[in-house]
Structures are given as structure tokens and as C-alpha cells.
């Protein structure tokens, strides 16, 4: 179950490093925010899976929608002269921490549950 996303990440990173694409200076903000959005959706997907509320449509649409929204926020920010991309960074950052906290809790409770079960079976 866990190896497929990890394999995907490894393939993606190697592809990215091998192609040596250079993003122009003006677009670096957009890329960084898109990366953050992708990371947020990714962690959110893991959390949803652990809580058994995962829906593929929501996951995929969230991935692209969040990325586009974040990039357009940054774009509007550039044209208005306000660093609006900070809003996206803030929102994604907070959500990232929350999701990771939920994942940690779920994993700890599961681990505890498993240990208790094992002890009961031993008895």
C-alpha cells in the first residue's frame, strides 16, 4: 500500500532532476506555491485514506484546483502589488500541519490498538 506513492515520488524527483528544466525568475513564485499546494493535497489524501473517507474525485480535483487557485492568487497578487501568495502559503502551511497532526494521531491510536489486541490474545 505504501510503496506505490513512494515509488511515484522517487520517479518524479529523478525525472525532474534529469530533465534540468530551468524555470524563469518571474515564475518561481508560482512554482513554489504549486509545489506547496500539491504537497498539501497529497498529505490531505493520506489523512482521508487513514480516516476511511477517501474519495478519488475529491482528491484529484482538489489537487489541480488548489494548484490553479494558488497560482492565480499569486498572479493577482503580483498585478495588485500585494503579496497575496502569502495568503496561500499561510493557508496551505496551516492545513499541512493539521493534516500531519491528524495522521500522527490516527497512526498512534492504531498502533496502541494493535498492541492491546496482541496482549489480549497472549492472555
Amino acid at each position: 500500500m505504501m510503496w506505490l506513492p513512494v515509488l511515484g515520488l522517487i520517479i518524479g524527483v529523478t525525472l525532474g532532476l534529469l530533465t534540468e528544466i530551468d524555470v524563469p525568475h518571474e515564475y518561481r513564485n508560482y512554482l513554489s506555491i504549486a509545489v506547496l499546494a500539491a504537497l498539501d493535497t497529497f498529505i490531505g489524501g493520506i489523512r482521508a485514506q487513514l480516516q476511511n473517507v477517501f474519495d478519488e474525485k475529491i482528491f484529484v480535483s482538489g489537487f489541480f484546483f488548489n494548484m490553479i487557485l494558488a497560482a492565480s492568487l499569486a498572479f493577482i497578487g503580483v498585478h495588485l502589488g500585494v503579496d497575496l501568495y502569502l495568503a496561500a502559503v499561510f493557508a496551505f502551511g496551516v492545513r499541512l500541519f493539521q493534516n500531519i497532526a491528524v495522521i500522527r494521531r490516527v497512526l498512534i491510536t492504531r498502533w496502541d490498538q494493535a498492541r492491546k489486541n496482541r496482549k489480549e490474545t497472549e492472555k
Binding site: 511515484g8 525525472l15 512554482l31 509545489v35 500539491a38 504537497l39 497529497f42
Partner: peptide
């Protein structure tokens, strides 16, 4: 999505 994320990351 992992491939995409990794690609952007790199």
C-alpha cells in the same frame, strides 16, 4: 499525483 509532486519538487 506523487510523480507530479516529485517532478515539481525537483
Amino acid at each position: 499525483i506523487c510523480v507530479l509532486t516529485g517532478f515539481m519538487f525537483a
